[in-house]
Design a protein around this nucleic acid. Structure first.
Lengths: 201, 201
DNA sequence: CCTACCGATCGGTAGG
DNA sequence: CCTACCGATCGGTAGG
């Protein structure tokens, strides 16, 4: 049955992407050979090339589905029409949790995007820019004075720094998890943006 | 004269390290060939190997002098015997400025340390751990209630996230520089740590 | 300090 | 004629 075969094909693709993401995250894109990816999937290399055109397509698909999930998270929160503070808190907490689930893909996105073709890199960057813009908008809704200053973007990027850096020190097996960190990051950021000096005030 | 040759030797080593750091930061450790490093320095590859034993030594030296500078910054600030808030602010602001000057080395440290030998990696990690511990101590001096909780370390790492991530979005040629960001990061963090809930309070 | 190489391994593809 | 896959090997290049 064609249906069943297609779904096996898709499932195999997903398995390959998960193994490749794990290896790329641990050893880097260039530091991982297609032989290693194939071995991790218990496939021969030619079979691996049956599922993906080349090595770059692996990294591209990993990054693309990751940023698509992030953009979808933003849309979900926006659709809930929350009050400004609740919306920003929801964005922060859901991103922290999502990053906890997608640590490998996130590391590939941040470290290996430089090895992709110009066009692919730009497309991924555009999605990331729209996600950052949504956070900045939500921040301005909470503290409207930031609109007139140039601080909304930098403060948003400091927030992303806190979240993007967590994978380097938060061990999944540790007692402190992303679930516990999510409200802490939100509390810290809310306290912070209430305290920053706005020049011209 | 032996003296003169030695200083030329050292200057050439520094030049090679700077070029290597630039290339590793832009293309990754594995993605950069020793031929590229040699060409950037206008040296032949065998000449490059006259100054450094192998490729790993380049990355190791780049990382080692970077963490040594960070540890020295901590010692300098400690020696000034500032009041708790002023000490933490000084640590934050000087680290932001130092990272602005050492963006290449910092990127090599965070992305390529995984390619070093176990022993080298552990030695670098030990220095980094002592730097993080100094920040955590300074944070506890500002907010002593954190001592009893497990929050001092996570909050310190969120702070390092903000600082460590800045190189990805703060363009050196942009109007917004590390100099302007330094006090903003400090303000945001001080506001944040005053606001976080401590369980058990 | 150069040209000329090495053992090995890379990403990708041939025929069957 | 299709898919899914194999053993073997391609042309180039890596670090040394």
């Amino acid at each position: 049955m064609a249906r069943g075969r297609a779904s096996t094909f898709d499932a195999q693709r997903e398995e390959i992407l998960a193994q490749a993401a794990r290896l790329f995250a641990a050893q880097g894109f260039v530091g991982t050979s297609m032989n290693e990816v194939a071995e991790a999937c218990k496939l021969s290399k030619p079979t691996l090339y049956h599922y993906f055109r080349d090595k770059h397509e692996l990294a591209m698909q990993i990054c693309e589905s990751h940023v698509a999930r992030l953009a979808a998270l933003v849309d979900e929160v926006k659709a809930e029409q929350l009050a400004p503070r609740e919306q920003l808190r929801a964005l922060i907490e859901r991103f922290v949790r999502e990053y906890g689930l997608a640590q490998d893909a996130h590391r590939v996105l941040t470290e290996d995007v430089k090895f992709l073709a110009e066009a692919d890199r730009e497309r991924l960057l555009d999605v990331q820019r729209s996600v950052v813009a949504a956070f900045a908008d939500s921040l301005v809704a909470v503290r409207p004075e930031l609109n007139a200053s140039t601080l909304a973007k930098p403060l948003t990027m400091l927030l992303f720094g806190m979240i993007n850096w967590m994978h380097t020190w938060l061990r999944p097996e540790g007692e402190l998890g992303h679930e516990t960190m999510a409200p802490l990051v939100a509390d810290l950021f809310f306290g912070g943006i209430a305290a920053v000096q706005i020049s011209g005030d």
